[in-house]
Simulated scan of single mutants.
Amino acid sequence: MKLEIIARDLYDIELINRSNADRIEFCSNLQVGGLTPTFFEIKNTFSKIPVNVMIRETNRDFIYSEDEMKLLLNEIEFCGKSNNISGVVFGMLTKENDIDIKHLKTAVSLAKEYNMTVTFHKAFDLINDFEEGYKILCDLKIDYVLTACGSNIIENITTLNKLKNIKGHTKILGGGGINSDNIDKVKDVVDEIHLGTLARENNSFNYPVDVLKINKLKKLITGG
Rank of each mutant, 00 (worst) to 15 (best):
M1Y: 09
I5W: 04
A7M: 10
A7Q: 10
L10W: 10
L10C: 10
Y11I: 14
Y11K: 15
Y11T: 15
D12A: 09
I13R: 09
N17F: 06
N17V: 07
S19N: 05
S19E: 04
A21C: 07
D22S: 12
F26R: 08
F26V: 09
C27A: 11
Q31Y: 13
L35D: 02
T36M: 01
T38D: 06
F46R: 14
K48L: 12
P50V: 04
N52P: 06
R56K: 08
E57G: 15
T58E: 10
T58M: 03
N59W: 08
L72M: 14
L73V: 04
E75C: 10
E77P: 07
E77C: 08
C79G: 08
N83D: 15
V89W: 00
G91H: 00
M92N: 12
K95W: 11
E96Q: 14
D98K: 14
K102S: 12
K102V: 12
H103M: 12
H103S: 13
S109M: 13
S109G: 10
N115Q: 12
M116C: 03
V118D: 01
H121C: 01
A123Q: 00
I127T: 00
F130E: 04
F130L: 10
E131D: 11
L137R: 03
C138E: 08
L140R: 05
L146F: 06
A148R: 02
C149D: 04
G150Y: 03
N152Y: 13
I153T: 05
N156F: 05
T159S: 13
L163I: 12
K164Q: 14
N165V: 10
I172R: 10
I172A: 10
L173I: 11
G175W: 02
G175V: 03
N179H: 06
S180I: 15
D181L: 14
D181C: 11
D181A: 14
I183V: 06
I183F: 02
D184V: 13
D191E: 11
E192N: 13
I193C: 03
I193P: 01
T197R: 13
L198M: 13
R200Y: 04
F205K: 04
F205Q: 05
N206V: 07
Y207V: 03
P208V: 05
V209N: 01
K213W: 01
N215R: 01
K216I: 12
L217P: 00
L220N: 10
T222N: 14
